[in-house]
């Protein structure tokens, strides 16, 4: 009796935890998804009149979703690739210097800046009437604001990518520095060198694989996060193509109420893609763990 009581208490506590997780974490998500699905088929919505597949067909035919998906993937992928490269380079090259208290503090600082603020900073710096444009004018490199190159709302998403990099890199840098320390990569590197590996071999075959192997799930999640980013592309992006979240909100807020459902179609497809990607990411991670 005295032994089973704490056990049942523990079970009860874990059950309550699970139910709360379901209520707060899963139920609203599933409910929202089902609602969006019903909306996309015209089954709910004050301006809809019943089941139809026309919104799915028109969304597919317009091509806006595919364009937006490709654009978002390229922007998020480029941002993650550059951020990972910079963070890895800094970790491998300057990890000792980065332990300095002032630098360590400076690394945390960008993490406290929300995306929307970072986007405004970028706009203030890179716009044609922004800080750098004014400097260029003061030095006589340009004579009019309009001569300054297009760095925000531009076709190559330079402003968006620059902002993403400034948000993601500090986070990845902290992550890599911790992994480097916890996995004792320094000692492994020394060992490999004592076994005859040169500096390059040590970096490419020991340090990088160890750090990346421990962090790729998080890098993948960050990629998904950037794929669905809203404020930064809203402020710094152009009108076409637009990143996925911006496209979804545009469709849902359009003037033609009879076509609001197209926004829900995009939201449903996007949710399915992202959820599948996240599940695959975690199941593969678990497989790796299991095999290990």
């Amino acid at each position: 009796m005295t032994i089973s009581e704490p056990l049942s208490l523990k079970n009860k506590a874990s059950n309550i935890g699970f139910i709360f997780f379901g209520l707060i974490g899963i139920l609203p998500f599933v409910a929202a998804f089902v609602y969006a699905l019903l909306y996309s088929f015209g089954l709910v919505g004050a301006a809809n009149s019943g089941f139809t597949t026309e919104f799915w067909i028109s969304t597919w035919q317009s091509g806006a979703f595919i364009k937006s998906l490709v654009y978002s993937t390229v922007v998020a992928g480029t941002s993650i690739f550059i951020s990972v490269s910079i963070a890895l380079w800094l970790t491998l090259k300057f990890r000792k210097e980065l332990e300095h208290p002032i630098l360590a503090f400076a690394m945390y600082l960008p993490l406290a800046i929300p995306g929307i603020v970072a986007a405004f900073f970028t706009f203030q710096l890179l716009a044609k009437a922004g800080f750098f444009s004014r400097i260029a004018y003061a030095f006589g490199w340009i004579t009019e604001a309009r001569q300054f190159p297009d760095l925000v709302n531009d076709p190559y998403a330079i402003g968006i990518i620059a902002t993403f990099i400034s948000i993601v890199t500090p986070f990845l840098l902290l992550l890599f520095l911790n992994v480097y320390k916890n996995e004792r990569v320094d000692e492994l590197a020394q060992l490999s060198q004592s076994l005859g590996a040169n500096k390059q071999q040590t970096v490419w075959r020991v340090s990088l694989p160890v750090v990346l192997n421990k962090t790729w799930t998080l890098i993948g999640l960050y990629f998904i996060f950037l794929l669905g980013a809203y404020e930064v592309p809203l402020i710094l992006g152009q009108e076409s193509p637009q990143m996925l979240s911006v496209l979804i909100i545009r469709e849902i807020k359009q003037y033609d109420l009879s076509r609001l459902s197209e926004g829900y179609v995009v939201a449903v497809i996007y949710t399915v893609i992202v959820t599948t990607a996240a599940v695959l990411l975690f199941s593969r991670k678990n497989d790796v763990k299991h095999e290990g």
Binding site: D150, N153, P155, L234, Q238, S240
Partner: peptide, 8 residues
């Protein structure tokens, strides 16, 4: 911007 994009 040479009409490549328009202000939102």
């Amino acid at each position: 911007k040479e009409g490549v994009t328009f202000p939102k």
